[in-house]
Computed example of a mutant assay.
Amino acid sequence: MLLRSLFLLLLVANLGFLAWRTGWLEPVTSAVGLPGPGDGREPQRMAQQLQPQAIKLLAAPPSATVVPADSQPAATPDAAASEPLSDAQRAASSATACLEAGPFGSAERAPVETALRGVQPAVRWEWREAVPGWWLAMGPFPDREAMRNRREELLRRGVTPETVSSGPLLLLVLGRYAQRGEADAQLAALNARGVRSARVLAPPGSGEAQYLLRVPAANAEQQEQLQALTREQSSAHRFAACAPGNGG
């Protein structure tokens, strides 16, 4: 009986709350001063919060303009070429060296000077009488064909001999040296490489005057041209640094 009474009481309370919530009892609650179902919602406050007409869109701040790398002006070749040379570059271009070649016979001087006149910028050269020294040579050969065959064999071994015809003598000169010891040392080096039959001898006709060619001051460009002139010659006729005490 008690449970039934509680059930009926809860049912009546729920029905009363539903009636109040839906506004059916609003005339009664207003008359007695009780709050209505809409009082807890604060409609005025909600109306103040929702004001779409007060919303304003703000413009984004201006951003930095990015210029593509392709649109930037590139340095022109003329501008790069006009940049001044560094101290190291100027020093390298102006550095000179003393070069020397020979000895040469009297008859060889004229064609050598003709070749030197083709070097640009022009170089200054001078001749010095050479003291007769020693040759490292092969021969004499019985004929030019035998000498040519031997020369081709030496070229295959990386040795470039000089062909010398002194009267009836046909020789291949592998080097010319001022001191006998220098010639002997080179002969030993060639023997170690398998090059045989060379020997050290005094130049034929040692009484003939021999001359050393010296270029006292040649820059890098001139040095390259001078070396090209004698690249196919024997080691004695190629340009090398001046001997100590002979530099310009």
Rank of each mutant, 00 (worst) to 15 (best):
G105M: 04
Q222P: 10
R45V: 08
L155T: 09
C98T: 01
S86Y: 06
A107N: 08
P244H: 02
F141L: 00
V200S: 07
L57A: 13
Q227C: 01
R193I: 01
G105Y: 05
G38F: 05
P132D: 10
A189W: 06
V66W: 09
Q225L: 10
L212T: 12
R4G: 12
S71W: 14
E126M: 11
S197G: 05
A69F: 05
E232F: 11
T96W: 05
F104Q: 01
H237M: 08
N149Y: 06
P37E: 04
A75N: 06
E162L: 09
R151L: 11
Q48D: 14
P68C: 10
T65F: 10
A202S: 13
L213E: 03
L187F: 06
R156M: 07
E126F: 08
L171C: 07
E224I: 14
S166T: 11
F104V: 07
R157Y: 08
E113G: 01
G102N: 06
S234H: 05
Q179T: 08
A130I: 06
A241V: 14
V195Q: 01
P43L: 10
E145Q: 15
Q233R: 14
P84C: 02
A192W: 06
Q227H: 14
P77K: 03
A183F: 00
P77D: 09
A185W: 01
Q186L: 10
A13I: 05
L11D: 02
A185K: 07
G175E: 04
L171F: 00
